[in-house]
Simulated assay, not measured.
Amino acid sequence: MNKRIAAAAAGTTLVASALVAVPATTASAGQLICDPGSRSVSWVSTSHSRVLTHEPKGLEKEYTGGKKTYTRTVTHEKTLTSTWSVTAGASAGFSVAKILASLDAKVEGSYTHAKGHTTTKSITVSDQLTKKGRYWFYAGRLQASGYWQGYRCDRGTKWIKQAHGTAKTYGALVEGATRCGEKVSSKSIASLVQKKYC
């Protein structure tokens, strides 16, 4: 079964300090444990899920087999946003790119590193069918969110909590068609479609 996956969102170079583990204790006198003034992001909790951004569209009747390309229009169902917020503390030294890149590295999948939202338009999905069965055309994305804490390195001897907040983001568009009963990854958008519509 052929599936087309849109190109993954462009990656943002990870700032090394964003992924440094925050030590539990401060350093001994004169010992440096971090670069003075650097920032680090730590995640208290994260989650990720699969989301159908467009309502799946099935064929009018069961496909009889043979190699043929079908096209269906799927209507918009849900808009996803990519953003971050500071619940408390000073946000200086932290940015949307740093926070979302760190979230991307923490959870499974590949996500956008910039603020934005998904399309609200209906889209056309095409796929080549080969086997007899009932098919559903779909479009969806991965979504991730989490609660973060930001730390600043003070004179190189200890990490000081500077800010905390929430963040959420989404991945590249995944579209195609899935046949009811075919084997697909349990972590795929196609699996979500089968569970809801087959």
Rank of each mutant, 00 (worst) to 15 (best):
R4T: 11
A10C: 02
G11F: 08
V15A: 13
L19D: 13
V22M: 06
P23R: 05
A24D: 14
S28R: 07
A29Y: 13
S38H: 05
S38I: 04
S38V: 03
R39K: 14
S40N: 03
V41R: 01
S45V: 10
S47L: 02
R50G: 09
R50T: 14
L52G: 10
T53I: 10
H54P: 09
E55A: 12
Y63M: 08
T79H: 04
T79K: 08
S85T: 15
F94G: 06
A97V: 06
S102V: 03
L103G: 02
A105Q: 12
V107Y: 03
G109M: 02
Y111I: 01
T112S: 06
T112E: 04
H117K: 15
L129I: 07
K132W: 01
Y138A: 08
R141L: 03
S145Q: 13
W148K: 02
G150L: 01
R152C: 00
D154I: 11
T157H: 06
Q162T: 12
A163Q: 00
K168V: 01
K168W: 05
T169W: 05
Y170C: 06
L173F: 00
L173E: 15
L173C: 07
V174E: 14
A177P: 08
G181P: 13
G181Q: 11
K183F: 07
S186P: 08
S186I: 12
I189W: 06
S191Y: 13
L192N: 10
V193C: 04
Y197E: 07
